[in-house]
Design a protein around this nucleic acid. Sequence first.
DNA 1: ATAATACCTAAACCTAACTTCAGGTCAAGA
DNA 2: TCTTGACCTGAAGTTAGGTTTAGGTATTAT
Lengths: 146, 146
Amino acid sequence: MYSIGQVAEMFGMPISTLRYYDKQGLFPNMERVSGIRKFSETEIEALRVIECLKKAGMEIRDIKQFMDWCKEGPATYPQRKELFETQKAHMEEEITRMNRTLDMLKFKCWYYEQAIRDGNEEKLAAMIPDELPKDIRAIYDSSHEK
Amino acid sequence: MYSIGQVAEMFGMPISTLRYYDKQGLFPNMERVSGIRKFSETEIEALRVIECLKKAGMEIRDIKQFMDWCKEGPATYPQRKELFETQKAHMEEEITRMNRTLDMLKFKCWYYEQAIRDGNEEKLAAMIPDELPKDIRAIYDSSHEK
DNA sequence: ATAATACCTAAACCTAACTTCAGGTCAAGA
DNA sequence: TCTTGACCTGAAGTTAGGTTTAGGTATTAT
């Protein structure tokens, strides 16, 4: 059994955040001894889950939903699975999108390297092939003004 | 030359957002005719850049900085390059982190598939090898309570 | 005895990026 | 003429995910 201060220390997060999570219902089983929160292994594990799910971009609302389903028992396995399937699809989409953005950033880095070397952007215009993806061209074109 | 309404239509965004961007200084060269905003090709291009940079997770503040540097001319090439290098590193880190999270989500999907098939989680305990990354074990362990 | 800690609460505050609102200008159409 | 529609402004409201504040309790150290 840990006090809120100990848990905050363990996870390197402010006490206020733990109280906030509790208020949002993320520790539905937490005990109290004369008003004071007692974090058991259950809550420690829940906190690890919370960190994971937050990294997955899940909102507090949805994390609470998950915690509530866990509390309800095996009948909610399908819902829990569905939740993770949705989250997985979302994350895959995000990664795809981010890789596209990364390509653009790489192009921009290359572009400015050339521009610095040449002293101006004009010579570059001729070098940029027309088949660049539209968003990369956009970012290229826009660098023209002034 | 486009009106704010036309641009909003073109980009599928609310007029209020365009006014907000303008107020934040993202269109430093925009003309006005008797108080009314006139979006030229320059602003259209700027808007495409804004969309790209927002996807890269850049804040409005930083996008404004970039727009201002563009206005200042070639002397700011190094700063602009630096901005994109930083953003690129940040995005690469993000992608790495997200792939780890994705692994966890895949595990969770698999896990619940088994749990649903078996009807309970107990049989699974024996199947989970000890060498699982800590965060995956955490999410596994936590599914135990109740 | 008293003062420092560690805990508690409700409620106000914070930031980013918008959105909504209330009130005003101006040109074109019925 | 009058009213509709597109534009303008500053200011207030919104949402998420906390953080800070003000005031209170309970235990421990001096």
